[in-house]
């Protein structure tokens, strides 16, 4: 009985390791050379609503138009509710969205961009010390 349990445990552990090791591969790099400049208002960031303005340009400095941008703000501590929003194009290559910093601390804004070509890219913006 003892050996059975040990063997079963070892098999389960091996399966777990295999299952996890499959996830260790790096995702394919699909991000095109897009430059994203950002502004957060008000600055320094405060608890409450914030406006995120993004300026996107390609490798040649031309504005990137008609992109779809989803915003997500996360606390640096796990277990907190993320905030979501979309950034809309307000001028060629300029996008604006609103998010809410629901508490003080360090926040991270994730920008998920879908380009007109269908390509996707993700960028991260640290907003530290929200008061």
């Amino acid at each position: 009985m003892g050996n059975f349990v040990i063997n079963w445990a070892a098999a389960a552990l091996g399966c777990g390791v295999l299952w996890l090791s499959a996830g260790c591969r790096k995702p394919a790099e699909t991000a095109p050379p897009i430059k994203i400049q950002h502004e957060v208002a008000p600055w320094p960031a405060r608890v409450g609503a914030a406006t995120i303005t993004l300026k996107m340009s390609d490798a040649g400095g031309q504005p990137v138009r008609a992109a779809r941008i989803a915003l997500e703000a996360d606390m640096s501590h796990p277990g907190m509710r993320p905030e979501f929003g979309d950034a809309m194009e307000i001028a060629p290559g300029r996008y604006r969205g609103r998010l809410s910093f629901t508490m003080a601390g360090d926040w991270v804004i994730l920008m998920r961009v879908k380009l007109p070509s269908g390509q996707k890219l993700e960028r991260q913006l640290d907003v530290n010390g929200v008061r």
């Binding site: 606390m75 640096s76 360090d106």
Partner: peptide, 8 residues
């Protein structure tokens, strides 16, 4: 107190 999660 208001919670503030900072790593800085």
């Amino acid at each position: 107190q208001p919670m503030e999660m900072r790593a800085t």
